[in-house]
């Protein structure tokens, strides 16, 4: 049970805005990255899905942006407490990218330019729940926000939506990614407030 903070009333949201526990409403788009923004050129960009048997499926920028794209409108939730509602993206569904991939893997390590990694269960990337996004609010995705392309898995905390994504390694056993190794939760469901290991 929480202790009451003497004299704290808080700033309530309109009744129709429901946020995950511990989150507040943000109207800007904060940037969170562990290091410098890596320069990623679409001329040399690649996206590679590597199966647990080592088979590789690779797209260059032209091939990737020629795939059928979807418009996505979604809320996003950052583990640093902000949530942003009704954001608009354009990207390629992971269902499309995984369509020709034969695998028995249960987990994925997303890998990014610059060395960032994050782990997710493979089922969380399927069935219309995840995309590789390359437009935000009608414009090319800005490098600060992960451009030219980032993973978009909005039902999990946003550190799972790896910026500057360049590949997925399919894994039969779960492994920790960058923040997960530092104590952040392996799954990261904002509605269950799974911020840190043990939550």
């Amino acid at each position: 049970m929480s202790i009451v903070s003497r004299g704290f009333s808080g700033r309530r949201r309109p009744g129709d805005v429901k946020l995950p526990p511990g989150q507040y409403l943000e109207t800007g788009f904060p940037v969170l990255s562990a290091g410098p923004t890596p320069p990623v050129k679409t001329a040399t960009w690649q996206f590679t899905i590597k199966t647990e048997l080592g088979q590789q499926h690779r797209w260059d920028w032209q091939q990737f942006t020629s795939l059928p794209a979807e418009q996505i409108t979604t809320d996003i939730h950052c583990v640093t407490k902000w949530s942003k509602l009704g954001t608009h993206w354009r990207g390629v569904s992971l269902d499309t990218l995984l369509g020709g991939v034969r695998t028995n893997a249960g987990y994925v390590m997303a890998r990014s330019y610059g060395g960032y990694t994050t782990n997710l269960p493979l089922p969380d990337l399927r069935d219309g729940k995840a995309w590789v996004a390359y437009e935000y609010e009608g414009a090319p995705l800005h490098p600060e926000h992960g451009g030219p392309a980032r993973l978009l898995v909005p039902h999990l905390y946003f550190w799972k939506s790896a910026k500057w994504v360049t590949g997925l390694d399919l894994m039969t056993h779960d492994q920790h990614g960058f923040w997960e190794e530092l104590g952040y939760h392996d799954y990261g469901d904002p509605w269950r407030e799974q911020r840190y290991q043990g939550d």
């Binding site: 009451v4 903070s5 704290f8 009333s9 700033r11 511990g22 507040y24």
Partner: peptide, 13 residues
């Protein structure tokens, strides 16, 4: 974490 008397709470880092 701050908590109001009615249970409303807010968190920041």
């Amino acid at each position: 974490k701050l908590t109001a008397e009615d249970g409303y709470s807010a968190q920041r880092s």
